[in-house]
Design a protein around this nucleic acid. Structure first.
Lengths: 234, 234
DNA sequence: TCAAAAGTGTTTATCATACACCCATGA
DNA sequence: TCATGGGTGTATGATAAACACTTTTGA
């Protein structure tokens, strides 16, 4: 097929869906466009591909430009290539979703973009097909986090079990039994209990844990079926 | 970011990973290139994107051109955009994987492409990064089929339990207990038992079944954990 | 009547769930 | 000392896995 048809050329961009967690809600980081068209509207961060970089490299560059952070958890989501995605010219885009610790982010924020966090349940209108993209990203996050230890990326290095449980409850919009939650998470052997406690959020205090992802493959199995499949749609 | 940097233009193609099952092995359909460069080498079917179509539409077009078939199960796999994927010029490609009933295919085959089926365990060398793409597709197929009723797409409309079991065994390269396999599959409520039997492959004969995917969402849960997670890597 | 493969039944161990209970602390 | 939330223990039911058993047919 290639070689038989004439090649066309296309504009090619990346868009980043950036998830964070503030202790209450799962949040999305969006920026306010400072240029036309749609100046002043909310949008995902994105950028055009350069000649010498892959989409992955472009996404890393875009993420660093906004957050100042390297080495974020990042994953290719989907390529959106409908001729009329919105906007005057046709742009093909590969979407990536990223998970960041909202505290680390706030230290290095690049205000030039006019970024803002929105709760995932109260998103503003986004330009082009960005709302669709975000919906897909939410589904994928739920799906993948049910099977893999992913959500730790949204927490600080040290976190407590109640924090972790709140995070899962925010992501899946459901409640878990704390006893069963603890057992399940500890049975993965991915967590290491520290000696100090967080005394700020309760009287008794809750022990801190860190995650040891080196044990990932061994502990993987126990993540299967973590969340009942009715909460997974993709 | 968009609007600030100058846009570049890129060649954009789709590649199709086509899986089939011949009753013995999981197979991949590849074509022999009839043009330079790499004339005579094995390759995935692909094609350049047209101005007025999405990548999905292009993949459907390419699949129909080769197999003569519409309405195949098809899913976007990944976008490959490394600047040096192989070949002289840079081409960004979105890969799709498709599942087809090998019998239906053989009726409408387009010999112009010099297509051939290879067992997934004995693949020839493929051009560019196509071997990498196929590896990723295999992983994704295993992953997804462990959670979703997908593999039916590889069988005729009527199939027997032993056939279905052989298919799963080929895909996961392991053996299942027939009693447990039957129970598990029947518990999904996705299968409808027919009145006639296949008397060709055994003395006793095996009842035919059809799959009723309308019951998909209801029966989904039971597909979780179908295959032990150690066989899933993505 | 026997071999081969289809299909069913049964036992056991493991795991998920629900929920009762105990513990440590600040007010 | 009591209310609060952290953390542990336990009983129950559901499910997965192993494997023995029965059924049907062609040779």
């Amino acid at each position: 097929m290639k070689g038989l048809l004439k090649e066309k050329n296309f504009s090619f961009a990346v868009d980043c869906i950036i998830f964070g967690y503030d202790g209450q809600d799962l949040k999305l980081l969006v920026i306010k466009r400072s240029f036309e068209p749609f100046k002043g509207k909310w949008s995902l961060v994105g950028g055009f591909l350069e000649d010498d970089e892959s989409a992955e490299e472009a996404a890393v560059r875009v993420l660093k430009g906004l957050t100042g952070l390297d080495g974020l958890y990042m994953e290719q989501l989907h390529c959106f290539s409908e001729p009329k995605r919105g906007g005057a010219e046709r742009i093909i885009s590969v979407a990536f979703f990223a998970l960041i610790d909202i505290q680390k982010y706030n230290q290095q924020i690049n205000e030039d973009y006019h970024p803002a966090w929105f709760s995932i349940n109260q998103l503003p209108e986004l330009i082009f097909d960005h709302s669709t993209i975000v919906e897909l990203a939410k589904e994928k996050l739920r799906y993948k986090a049910a099977l893999h230890p992913l959500l730790f990326e949204l927490l600080p290095d040290k976190f407590t079990m109640p924090q972790l449980q709140s995070l899962y409850e925010a992501v899946y919009n459901m409640e878990f039994d704390k006893g069963n939650f603890n057992r399940k998470l500890l049975s993965t052997k991915l967590l290491e209990k520290l000696e100090d406690k967080d005394m700020l959020n309760s009287k008794k205090g809750a022990f801190y844990y860190t995650v040891n992802l080196k044990k990932y493959s061994a502990g993987f199995k126990t993540f299967l079926n973590f969340v009942s499949s009715q909460y997974i749609n993709k």
